[in-house]
Amino acid sequence: MKNFQLSFPDSEKKSEVSISSDSKAVINGKEVEFNYKWLSPNVMILRIDNRNYYFSVAENTDDNYTEINLDSILYKVICKSELDLLKEKLSGNKSGDSVKNEVVSPMPGIIKKLNVHEGQQIKKGDVLLVLEAMKMENEIKSKKDSVIKKICVEEMNSVEKNELLILLG
């Protein structure tokens, strides 16, 4: 029996899954039978009590959740095993509020505009800078309320994918 606790960042909901065998699980107290096949490392056909689901799955390593796509609708899920929970308990790290302090470039491009200065208080959703890539101007927004600790680039700089742009504090 393997137990997992799941939460959905877009909702208050939580759920619990216990896998009892290759084809049996208990989900939120309800026993189900399932079978599945991986069509690629990220695509799965899953049948639960004969009901069909065609999922694609990806890991969002920036924000530590799994993205599950069903019928072109995206579900964000944080999935933790008993072992994960135990590890967190031991290291004293609370779950859920671990958005990183590093703002990195999502793609190669040119910094068109810096909207913030060091020491500035910012709110989640504030536009930090404008990155030009693929002939488009893209707004890079803050993923949390914070303070600008350090700005590592200047306007008109070329940046590479995953290059550190701004450090939040």
Binding site: K2, F4, L6, F8, D10, S11, K13, S15, V17, I19, A25, I27, N28, K30, V32, F34, Y36, W38, P41, M44, L46, I48, R51, Y53, F55, V57, E59, T66, I68, L70, S72, I73, L74, Y75, V77, C79, S81
Partner: peptide, 26 residues
């Protein structure tokens, strides 16, 4: 964007199981 319908319990259960299977497979 179209957001997920979290009130659908069957769907929640399926998504949860998919996340677990993905984690195990990974």
């Amino acid at each position: 964007i179209i957001s997920p319908d979290f009130s659908n319990e069957e769907l929640d259960a399926a998504v949860s199981l998919a996340a677990v299977l993905f984690k195990e497979n990974k």
